[in-house]
Amino acid sequence: MVCVVGNRARAAIIRSRQITGLAPDVIAELVAEVGPLWHKRHQAGLASRPWRRAVGAGAKHKLVFVDRLLATLVHLRHGATHDVLACWFGVDRSTITRAIGEVRPLLSERGCTIAPGVRLRSLAEVVDYLGASGQTGIIDGTGIRVRRPAAGRKDRDKFISGKNKQNAVKSMVVTDADGRLLFCSPAQPASCADITHARQLGLVRLLEGGPAAEILADAGYQGLGAQTGGRVVTPPHRKFKKNAPDWYEEMHERQRKAHSSRRIRVEHGIAHLKNWRALARHHGRREHMTDTIRAIAGLLSHQQTTTLAADERM
C-alpha cells in the first residue's frame, strides 16, 4: 500500500492549525516530550513477553511516531473515524486504532499547562495553585453525548441525563477567572448530580483543610458553600418565594447578574473544549472518555499558555 502522507503532506498538516487545533511549535514540543515516553513504553511492552528473536527484529513500523501523533490529533479535533485516517495515512485500520490507543493515554497524563513546564494533574494541585496565587477558580459540569448501552446491559439507565434526557457522561471542568483550563475530572455517568460529583472528587475535603481559595459555581452546587466555610460561592438564595417586594426583586436580580457575569468564563472554557469534535458527541467506547477528555484539556491548555506567552512577549 502506498503511503498517502509523505514529508510534504506531513509538513502541511503540522503547519495548518485548522487540522490539528495546535500551532506548529506546540506540536514540536509534543513530539519531543511524548515521543520518548511512547518509545519507552513500547520497548517495555516488547520486553515483557518471551521472544524467539531479539527484541526489535522483524518488520518495522509503517507509521512513525510523528504520524501516530498527528493521527491522534486529527481524530480528537475532527472526530475522524479510524477508517478515514487509515486511508489518509496509507495503513490498515487496526494500525490507526492501536496508534490512537497508545498515544491518547500519554496525552491524558500530561495534565493542564498553566506556565511553560508547570502542569496541574489533580484537583488537589488545582486548589493549592489557586490558594497560592490568590486567583478565583470557576467550576461547572459539562455533559458529552455517548452511545446508549446495549439492551439488557447492567446499569443501562445510569447514563441518562435527568436534565437533557440523553445518554451522556459528565465531567467537572475547572477554569481560572479568565477561562483558562485548569482541570477536567474523569468521566462519570450523566445521572450523577453536579454537587455529588464534586463531593466524590473530594472538593469539600480539599477546601476545608487546604488554602483559602474562592470557587465560583452555579446553582447546581448550592450547599457546598456551607460545607466549605463559604469558599464555594453560589448564586444568592431567594428569601421570598411569593409576593416579594420590588426592592428585593431588584437587589436579587442585580446580585444574580453580578455572579453570572463572573462565572460565565467557565462556559467559554467549556465551549473551547467542545470545539474538539470528539467531545461534541462521542461515538467510540465509553471506557475511553476519561482519556479523551483529559487529553483534549491538556492540549488546549498547552495551546492557551503558548498563545498567552507569545502575546506577552509582543
Score class of each variant (00 low, 15 high):
Met1Ala: 11
Met1Val: 08
Cys3Thr: 15
Gly6Ile: 02
Asn7Trp: 12
Arg8Asp: 15
Ala12Tyr: 00
Ile14His: 02
Arg15Ala: 15
Arg17Asp: 11
Ala23Glu: 11
Val26Pro: 00
Glu29Phe: 02
Ala32Asn: 02
Gly35Asn: 14
Trp38Glu: 11
His39Val: 14
His39Cys: 09
Ala44Asn: 09
Leu46Asp: 05
Pro50Ile: 03
Val55Phe: 07
Ala57Gly: 03
Lys62Trp: 03
Val64Met: 09
Val64Gln: 11
Val64Phe: 01
Phe65His: 05
Leu69Ala: 06
Leu69Met: 08
Leu70Trp: 08
Leu73Glu: 09
Arg77Leu: 05
His78Gly: 14
Gly79Phe: 08
Ala86Lys: 05
Ala86Phe: 07
Cys87Lys: 12
Asp92Asn: 10
Arg93Gln: 15
Arg93Phe: 09
Ala99Phe: 01
Pro105Tyr: 06
Pro105Arg: 12
Glu109Met: 04
Arg110Thr: 09
Ile114Tyr: 01
Pro116Arg: 14
Leu120Ala: 09
Leu120Ser: 07
Arg121Asp: 01
Leu123Ile: 02
Tyr129Leu: 05
Leu130Arg: 05
Gly131Pro: 06
Ala132Met: 02
Gln135Ile: 10
Gln135Leu: 14
Ile138Leu: 12
Gly141Thr: 13
Gly141Asp: 08
Thr142Ile: 02
Thr142Leu: 02
Gly143Phe: 10
Arg148Gln: 10
Arg148Lys: 13
Pro149Gly: 06
Pro149His: 04
Pro149Ser: 07
Arg153Glu: 15
Lys154Glu: 15
Lys154Val: 12
Lys154Ala: 13
Arg156Gly: 12
Ile160Leu: 11
Ser161Glu: 00
Asn164Gly: 04
Lys165Ala: 01
Lys165Thr: 00
Lys165Pro: 00
Ala168His: 07
Lys170His: 15
Ser171Pro: 02
Met172Val: 13
Val173Ser: 01
Arg180Gln: 13
Pro186Glu: 07
Pro186Cys: 10
Asp194Leu: 00
His197Pro: 03
Leu206Gly: 06
Leu206Phe: 03
Ala212Thr: 08
Ala213Phe: 08
Glu214Pro: 04
Leu216Gly: 08
Asp218Leu: 06
Gly220Ser: 03
Gly223Asn: 04
Leu224Trp: 10
Leu224Thr: 10
Gln227His: 04
Thr228Ile: 13
Gly229Glu: 11
Gly229Arg: 11
Thr234Ala: 12
Thr234Val: 14
Pro235Ala: 08
Pro236Ala: 04
Lys239Thr: 06
Lys239Met: 01
Asn243Glu: 11
Pro245Phe: 11
Asp246Asn: 14
Tyr248His: 14
Glu249Pro: 01
His252Val: 10
Glu253Ser: 12
Arg254Asp: 01
Ala258Ser: 14
His259Pro: 07
Arg262Ser: 06
Arg263Pro: 05
Val266Ala: 12
His268Ala: 08
Ile270Trp: 06
Ala271Lys: 10
His272Val: 10
Leu273Ala: 06
Arg277Thr: 10
His282Pro: 03
Gly284Val: 07
Arg285Glu: 03
Glu287Leu: 04
Gly298Arg: 05
Leu300Arg: 13
Gln303Asp: 03
Gln304Tyr: 05
Thr305Asp: 00
Leu308Val: 09
Ala310Lys: 04
Asp311Phe: 05
Asp311Ile: 07
Asp311Met: 09
Arg313Ile: 13
Arg313Gln: 13
Met314Arg: 14
